[in-house]
Design a protein around this nucleic acid. Sequence first.
DNA 1: TTGATATCATTTGCATACGAATGAGTTTTC
DNA 2: GAAAACTCATTCGTATGCAAATGATATCAA
Lengths: 153, 153
Amino acid sequence: MSAEDNLLKLVEVEEPDDQDYLLQEQVGFILRKAHQRHVAIFAAHIGDLTPPQFAALAKLRDVGETSQNQLGTLIAMDAATVKGVIDRLKARGLVELSKHEVDKRRLLVNLTAEGRDAIERLIPQAREITKETLAPLSAKEVTTFMKLLAKLA
Amino acid sequence: MSAEDNLLKLVEVEEPDDQDYLLQEQVGFILRKAHQRHVAIFAAHIGDLTPPQFAALAKLRDVGETSQNQLGTLIAMDAATVKGVIDRLKARGLVELSKHEVDKRRLLVNLTAEGRDAIERLIPQAREITKETLAPLSAKEVTTFMKLLAKLA
DNA sequence: TTGATATCATTTGCATACGAATGAGTTTTC
DNA sequence: GAAAACTCATTCGTATGCAAATGATATCAA
């Protein structure tokens, strides 16, 4: 191989073209898979509630009664999505709705007694889910990962 | 406040019970938000194709003709989901379907000329999307993050 | 060879997820 | 105080994502 060929090869290696795009190495693709794995772990522990439904209950426990819209902001769900989630929780008697007396646009959401019981009972399970999701990492790796993931979210 | 009260308070603080579950610090919740952010970045760059549709085209470019099921395995989609994705790509003329001659159960999928053009044209955009998604991290952090994320996925 | 098992694809049902449009009510601004 | 701008909630349409059931075909094992 001539010196020119070597130079050419170096240039090719250092300037990857379209041939080198590997789907399975892209953040988006791996992020999607990691999320899928988490959802599967969640479902294995808590079969009768989805992660978004759990998030809604957990946040209501934190903040108490709020408007549907505000709740959506707190759990990163758009208005259309949060409505569906709350509808299903209401149908199961875990939350109750009421109208804001002053601002008539707002729909207030709150836990029912049953909803409060449910979320208190589920929180230990949720800790377990977090633990299992992070199980492939060492304690130190967990700290690092959470710090970096938070920067991306 | 009595000494006993102080002791009680300390115990409560140092042995977090259910009161201390913070949704916004759980992996699953942040993972969901990071994924949402990535999808938004994707949509801003590539408006007429979703990440799963892109993944299907990119993988077909890598491996050439495969069965629908096999493609699903390669891009981490279950059979029901991959069918919908392929249906929509077919309706747009980006992939074509044919029957496997030997194994009559299999439905073969391949890029059309148009599909191949599309994916080649989109790959530079996809690099940009990956770059923008990872923009909050330094080069060193990216390396660390990708290594740990891969362990979780 | 045939009966049990496994695989591939499809369909149905349910649950996010989000853009866009709409209607009702509130706040701002001039 | 009236018009403009904004906010809250709802609805519609489209696209994942997965469990479960089904039908067609292949493969394995007795």
